[in-house]
Simulated assay, not measured.
Amino acid sequence: MTDPATHPTTSADTLPKPTAMQVGSLRVTALQDGHFDLPTAFLTSPTGESPIADATFNLDVNAFLIQDANRNILVDTGCGSQLGPTVNKLVPSLRAAGLAPSDIDAVLCTHIHPDHTNGLIDAQGSAIYTNAQVFVHQNEIDFWLNDGRREQATGELRQSYEWAHEAFSPYAGRIEPFRSGGVLAGIEAIPLFGHTPGHCGFQFDGGGTDQLIIWGDVVHNIEVQAREPEISVLADVNQSEARSTRLSIFDRVTADDVLVTGMHVKFPGFGRLRRAGAGYEFTPDP
């Protein structure tokens, strides 16, 4: 069961209250950075048909705070100051949950895209999480933080490289690359490649059967992509691999009946996936 965090938000008219859930020994709090309204064409179907009749759809941008007896861990950092007025609300959301950025011990990055890692820095380019180690998959470092690739990139892709460089530079000496398996005690990295070369999720062990998987950007529209997992998004670096990954993690969480959430599932995002006909159905929890 979930319960609203007791601290008020700094902008209650636009910012949902942090929502906390107990997963065994872990307290997991959903934080919202904001939202985007994206064109339906962002979703791509193998048949070429639009999966949504409306011209746009809402995309929530979430992050998650994981707390145990000794650690405050943040999963993703939101959009930062670069991506417009409807986002960059993560720090106020974190404060509404009772913490300052300096209280964060570790930041786990699902991948390096601007709506997930631009929030590592403030508008002046300084590190926000001054006491945190930053964990990111080695493939992401090799792809996004490679100076040669950055110099060869053009257009919007070049901008993404520049933003990645700016976001991670202030954390030099505090970046911890990983590949798979254990990242920190009780936290397993799950490779979910396709959306980006090192995109991954994390499984959090609350003890016994109390588990949570945060699957990053496996989906951008849970209602559509649960029903039709073949639908991908324009932002996928490798759409074919992203589809295979989505089917694989859908099978895993369905078979294990594990609680899941993601960065673009309608806030607060906690729920369970079940088979429904030829596809799946997502049921929010509660």
Rank of each mutant, 00 (worst) to 15 (best):
P284T: 13
A5C: 09
H7Y: 07
F267S: 00
A96D: 04
A242D: 05
E162W: 08
H199T: 01
T6R: 14
L38T: 09
L74E: 04
Q159F: 03
H199V: 03
V237C: 02
T209R: 15
R150E: 06
I112Y: 00
A106G: 02
P197I: 12
Q159A: 06
V134Q: 07
D33P: 13
V258S: 08
G155T: 13
S45T: 12
L31G: 11
A278T: 07
H113K: 11
T261R: 09
L247P: 00
R71K: 12
G181F: 12
E49R: 10
S248H: 04
P268D: 05
L38Y: 15
D122L: 09
E281S: 13
A226H: 05
R275Q: 07
D68Q: 12
R95M: 04
Q152Y: 01
G34E: 03
N70H: 04
T6D: 14
P286K: 15
R275F: 02
R95T: 05
S102I: 13
R272F: 08
A12K: 05
D68T: 10
T19G: 05
A167P: 00
T77P: 02
R243A: 11
L273I: 08
N62L: 10
P268R: 07
R27S: 12
E49F: 06
G201D: 11
N146Q: 03
A185M: 03
T261A: 11
G148M: 00
I175E: 08
E223C: 01
T209I: 10
S81F: 08
S102Q: 15
L59H: 05
H113G: 06
A41E: 04
P39K: 12
V23T: 05
T196R: 14
H199A: 14
G262T: 10
V219S: 07
G173K: 10
G198W: 07
D257I: 06
H7P: 01
V183R: 08
E162K: 12
I141W: 04
T56K: 14
P16H: 02
N146K: 04
P39W: 08
R243Q: 15
T110D: 02
P191S: 02
F204W: 11
A255N: 15
P92V: 13
T209A: 14
T283R: 13
E166K: 02
V233E: 01
N131A: 14
F143G: 00
A164N: 04
L90D: 07
A12V: 09
T19P: 01
D103C: 11
L120S: 07
S81W: 07
G148L: 00
R274V: 00
N72T: 06
V233Q: 10
D147A: 11
I175W: 11
Y171V: 05
N118A: 15
P101M: 14
N118I: 08
V260R: 07
A30P: 01
S11W: 04
E281F: 08
E49P: 00
W144G: 02
G198Q: 13
L74V: 06
T44R: 12
